[in-house]
Structure formats: structure tokens, C-alpha cells
């Protein structure tokens, strides 16, 4: 597994785990994530998660 491994398609996480993932991201960012604005591609892999949720924050 690496940062480009698909996390949902490969079964590492299920759709039910997404809530916990989003709350974990919020805890790292210190602010809420607007789930309605998330594009499915954002949850593709670790790289896309970083690009979507952390890069703009300089973390």
C-alpha cells in the first residue's frame, strides 16, 4: 500500500468508515468539513486526501 492506493475501491475503508475519516480530518484541521461539498475523487487515496483537505492549509 502507498499514498496512491485506492482506499475505498480496495476495501481498506468502507463507506461506513467515511464519517470517522471526516471527523479525524476535522480533528487535525481544527475545523469542520462540509461533506456536501466533497467530490468523490477527494476520497480516492492518501494523496487526494492531502490535496483536498490539507494542502490549502499549508499543513
Amino acid at each position: 500500500m502507498d499514498d496512491r492506493t485506492p482506499i475505498l475501491d480496495s476495501g481498506i475503508l468502507s463507506s461506513l468508515d467515511v464519517v470517522e475519516l471526516v471527523i479525524f480530518i476535522e480533528s487535525l484541521r481544527g475545523e469542520e468539513v462540509d461533506v456536501d461539498s466533497i467530490e468523490p475523487e477527494a476520497l480516492l487515496n492518501v494523496d487526494s486526501l492531502f490535496e483536498t483537505f490539507f494542502k490549502a492549509f499549508g499543513r
Partner: peptide
Amino acid sequence: YAQKKLVV
């Protein structure tokens, strides 16, 4: 409060 579920 917003929900955080996504439908796959």
C-alpha cells in the same frame, strides 16, 4: 447539525 455520511 450537518450529517457526514456519504452514499456510495
